[in-house]
């Protein structure tokens, strides 16, 4: 039992990091998410199969909590899906004037939640695509397509920040 606690504890910094990325850098909301995740993990210890990947299990719990959270706030139209068509052009034009978009966090905030999750699990946590698919409960192909969309969106958003002499995106 105490070994389990120790192992869970060792993943807290990673969970915090991930939660911060998901919650748009809102430190309090992110830590609340981590706390909910830990409480659930500790109270459902009997559901964890001994010997299976504890880290993946913790991220699965966090994904479920985050998905619930998103569902709850989805009535308030906070997230705008940026499609790389005419919306994107409009948003890009707007973004170009918007000097606020300076760092990667703000760019990530513009991604829809599912794409944010995939990108962060792969990039930040360094998980295999197969593991990400298990955690999110989607096929590996879906992970790949969301990852690709997330990166291409970020690329478009962040291109604005580069000096024009370097390169223009087509």
């Amino acid at each position: 039992m105490s070994r389990y606690f120790e192992q869970v504890t060792s993943y807290i910094p990673q969970l915090r990091c991930y939660a911060r990325a998901l919650m748009g850098n809102d430190v309090l909301a992110a830590d609340d998410l981590v706390q909910d995740c830990l409480e659930r993990a500790l109270s459902r210890i009997h559901l964890w199969r001994r010997g299976s990947d504890l880290r993946a299990w913790l991220f699965t719990i966090m994904h479920n909590l985050y998905a619930n959270h998103i569902r709850k706030i989805s009535n308030a139209p906070k997230f705008v899906e940026l499609e790389p068509d005419k919306n994107m052009v409009a948003d890009k034009a707007k973004a170009e004037q918007d000097l606020e978009i300076r760092d990667i966090q703000q760019a990530i905030n513009m991604l829809p939640p599912e794409q944010r999750e995939v990108l962060m699990l792969v990039t930040l946590e360094g998980l295999q695509y197969r593991e990400v698919a298990t955690i999110l409960g989607v096929p590996e192909g879906t992970v790949m397509s969301k990852l690709s969309r997330a990166r291409n969106k970020l690329r478009t958003i962040m291109q604005i920040e580069k000096p024009k002499s370097l390169r223009r995106v087509k």
Binding site: P13, Q14, R16, C17, R20, A21, D103, I104, Q105, I108, L119, M120, T123, L124, R151, L154, R155, M158, Q159
Partner: peptide, 17 residues
């Protein structure tokens, strides 16, 4: 660009660890 994005993510979030 993808690599640049990866690096930026790590630069930004790793200190949280």
């Amino acid at each position: 660009d993808y690599q640049h994005i990866n690096d930026s993510i790590h630069d930004y979030f790793d200190p949280i660890l």
